[in-house]
Design a protein around this nucleic acid. Structure first.
Length: 774
RNA sequence: GGGCACUUAGCUCAGCUGGUUAGAGCGACACGUUUACACCGUGUAGGUCGGGGGUUCGAAUCCCUCAGUGCCCACCA
């Protein structure tokens, strides 16, 4: 029971009106569901319009960005339905590998549980339960937003359909020689305990110390008679000195004269570890302006060093392991964390070896998810060669096959594609698509050692098929062991436009099987031809007409979808690609849980109603432009649109409820006011339609708002009071058109009022978008 | 270092394929309870459209330049 305190009888009246005379949103949503107007119908001869919902990550409730994205998609879908298209708005969710594990592990910690305590089987069981729990809240939010999606075709990225698609794509790339496995330098997150990609990192400015370390030549420090000749190297990472394998100097550096001589590692090494002498080499890739123009080469912990090491056939050592702690190589520092070891190593060096120390501000790469400092190291991972895939995508984009909104994203994507690196697709996680590769023995599965980079490159670095392994969804037989890594989430997300339509050869399952990976329908995965088709029933929806995304995942997701689709099907995945802006706080920061600056969509919906909240979101949906918002600003705007909703209710009350008796008149536009409002309506229809076609929803909503409030209500209705009986048909005509124009944006309110026009229980969604004859 | 945006009323932002007195919401101020609506109406104040230069009959809109802000990419020993 809720007790409300009213300040006046008027407020009480208002409240009654809002809560009782108007149907609940749930009632209206169920009405739509009952009429079955959301599902697409591939059998009709209507033209199709397909919209793909970007699957939200299953990491928690939907945030404001999702709300905006989904409101935009829903408006487009409803608009196209009104225009008579057979609309497919396909929803789904993403398993979001790293992000999900991060969230789930935090949840487990609360219960004093962990991956190691549970073991893989138990962990996965609980993970699926957790997934269901999150999914429920997402599912409720979608309906609360009014999303008119085809729920019967909903897909989860770990469903059987995507599983088939992932396998087929992997197999195709493998057979075409694009997939290779090998130990390479990768960006490693010690906290997530997996390799990640460059695009999954961000940089943080840090103030650290830059040490100028002396590497003495020829004279072994242990002999006690260190000479004076030395090379000074500036480094911020003293702890990696244990894994140094050479000193490289720029050819123009004063240290050039020492090339060919031998330097010594200036810290005590573990006795059984490794040799302590270093070659001095020349290399142009060393920045002669940084520090002293000399660089210590640590191929195990730096990408540039790795390349230089490769070219000079240098060995690789690891001073830091995958958990971010020092290895045996570091002797007494073994087991220390990197930051501690850095200080300790500097102490070990002491004044003898440190010439000077400088304060130094630089950007440190951190994991986008958990903000842990990234440790570049060598790990055995799977990669996809990207050159050919990128070329295909570039060709389509340059030919203008995809309509990017705003259009400059076309160039941004091409620039990235033209400088693409190979894609590390393996992740050391449990939540995801297991890599469909099988080994006859465990020894083949793990083969990393401290062999030289070159020999590694030669043994397993070639793209193409590796002897002895099998690519298969299911075990090839007893004794075979599956690769223990999973695929990068974006590998399955990249296939989203295909897997959602049943590619490669697979009829989509009904929702009942959602949530559990089924095995029954798995085939050997051997399609007859190279370019397998989509589900014949659903094929007509491909390519998708409309896709939407936040700009921040343009490379991770959008570029991948284009590359994979073009290569695997020969077609672009979508015709229009819309990038909305990012909602930020007043300081321009992204919304995030850790900053606590988020605004809950549920709060806005509860306070101002879904229709008003949607209108507010449209006002911020300027293509590609960020919006700065705060709770106060959002409230302010939403309040305005809530008032707008009330205004429309009152207009409806005036036009329909207070209809004069004997008002059955013919619709005629004889009076000059009638002709004027008709003209204004036509202008509004024209502009709104145009704005919708350009996906300028902020303009479309503003256009209707002005017409409704400042032309229809303020002017026409006021004037009509003098000639009410005569004007009644025009009032009704204008109102009905307003409802249709507004329906894509304020679906609940417009449906509710529309119902009062007739008793036939026809949904407004089945009406027609107004078309101008001239 | 490379690229892309943005800078318009007190605040948040539209408008920008050049063309009537530059708009909205909120905020401020003054009136008003005239039965659709006070979650309202009527009206007022508030802008040399970041600075400078140019093209043009005409520039918030196109070009150049300077300054500031933000974002993306690369690098960061």
């Amino acid at each position: 029971m809720i007790y409300t305190c009213y300040n006046s009888s008027r407020e009480r009246k208002m409240d009654r009106e809002n809560n009782h005379n108007f149907k609940s949103q749930k009632e209206i949503y169920n009405f739509w569901q009952k009429l079955k107007i959301f599902p697409a119908n591939s059998k009709t001869n209507k033209p199709k319009y397909s919209i793909l919902l970007p699957p939200p990550n299953l990491t928690g409730e939907l945030h404001l960005g999702h709300a905006m994205q989904h409101s935009i998609l829903d408006a487009i879908a409803r608009y196209k339905r009104l225009q008579g298209f057979d609309v497919l708005l396909l929803p789904g969710v993403d398993h979001a590998g790293i992000a999900f594990e991060e969230t789930f592990d935090r949840e487990l910690k609360k219960q004093n549980l962990s991956k190691t305590k549970l073991g893989m089987d138990q962990w996965l069981k609980k993970a699926w339960e957790f997934k269901d729990q999150i999914y429920k809240s997402v599912s409720v939010s979608w309906r609360m937003m009014g999303l008119c999606a085809d729920w019967g075709r909903e897909v989860f990225t770990l469903d059987e359909g995507p599983r088939q698609a992932v396998f087929h794509a992997f197999k195709t790339f493998y057979e075409d020689g694009f997939i290779y496995k090998g130990p390479y330098i990768v960006q490693w997150c010690p906290r997530c305990n997996t390799a990640i990609e460059d695009v999954e990192m961000e940089y943080e400015e840090r103030k650290e110390k830059l040490y100028y370390v002396k590497y003495f030549l020829d004279q072994h420090p242990a002999s006690g008679k260190s000479g004076t000749e030395h090379i000074v190297v500036a480094t911020a990472r003293t702890e990696t000195i244990f894994a140094d394998v050479a000193i490289a100097v720029h050819p123009a550096s004063p240290f050039k004269k020492y090339v060919g001589r031998t330097a010594y590692i200036p810290v005590p090494l573990s006795p059984k570890g490794r040799q302590d002498h270093l070659g001095v080499i020349a290399d142009e890739r060393v920045d002669k302006n940084f520090g002293t123009g000399a660089l210590k080469i640590t191929p195990g912990h730096d990408a540039l060093d790795y390349k230089i090491g490769l070219d000079n056939n240098l060995p690789i050592y690891h001073a830091v392991d995958k958990s971010g702690r020092m290895t045996e190589l570091a002797g007494e520092l073994k087991g220390l964390k990197v930051e501690e070891a850095r200080v300790k190593a500097a102490e070990l060096l002491g004044e003898t070896y440190i010439e000077k120390t400088e304060e130094y501000i630089h950007s440190v790469p951190v994991c986008e998810r958990c903000k842990t400092v990234i440790e570049p190291l060598i790990s055995e991972e799977w990669f996809v060669k990207m050159d050919d895939l990128a070329k295909g995508a570039i060709k389509e984009i340059k030919a203008g096959m995809i309509n990017f909104l705003p259009k400059n994203y076309s160039k941004i994507l091409v620039d990235w594609l033209e400088n693409i690196h190979d894609w590390c697709i393996s992740r050391s996680l449990w939540w995801g698509h297991r890599i469909p590769v099988w080994y006859p023995s465990t020894s083949l599965r793990t083969s990393l050692s401290t062999r030289s980079a070159r020999s590694l490159q030669q043994s397993s670095g070639q793209a193409g098929q590796v002897a002895g392994i099998k690519v298969s969804m299911e075990s090839p037989g007893p004794g075979w062991i599956q690769d223990d890594q999973v695929l990068d989430t974006w590998f399955s997300s990249g296939l989203w436009p295909l897997s959602t339509l049943g590619w490669p050869h697979f009829v989509l399952q009904s929702r009942t099987s959602r949530g559990k990976p089924s095995i029954a329908l798995a085939t050997e995965g051997k399609p007859s031809d190279k370019k397998p088709s989509l589900d014949p029933d659903l094929e007509k929806y491909f390519p998708w007409d409309f896709e939407i995304s936040a700009p921040e995942i343009k490379y991770l997701w959008i570029a991948r979808m284009i590359m994979l689709s073009v290569y695997l099907t020969g077609q672009i995945p979508f015709k229009t690609m819309f990038f909305h802006g990012m909602l930020r706080d007043l300081q321009g920061r992204k919304f995030s849980k850790s900053l606590g600056n988020g605004i809950e969509p549920a709060y806005l919906i509860n306070t101002w109603g879904i229709d008003a909240t949607r209108m507010t979101l449209y006002s911020y949906s300027v293509p590609g432009r960020d919006g700065r918002v705060s709770k106060e600003l959002f409230d302010e705007r939403s309040k305005n649109f809530r008032n707008f909703a009330t205004k429309i209710k009152n207009i409806a009350k005036f036009v329909l409820d207070l209809k004069p008796e004997n008002s059955i008149q013919k619709l005629e536009f004889n009076h000059k006011d009638d002709r004027w409002i008709k003209l204004q309506l036509e202008k509004t229809i024209k502009k709104t339609t145009n704005d919708l076609e350009q996906v300028n929803l902020h303009l479309a909503t503003e256009e209707i708002y002005n017409f409704v409030w400042h032309e229809f209500a303020d002017i026409y209705i006021e004037k009509s009071k003098k000639r009410r009986l005569e004007a009644q048909p025009v009032l009704e005509y204008i109102l009905k058109n307003i409802l249709i124009l507004l329906h894509p944006f304020m679906p609940f309110l417009t449906e509710e009022i529309y119902q009062r026009f007739n008793n036939k229980q026809k949904s407004i969604l089945l009406d027609k978008w107004p078309v101008l004859n001239n």
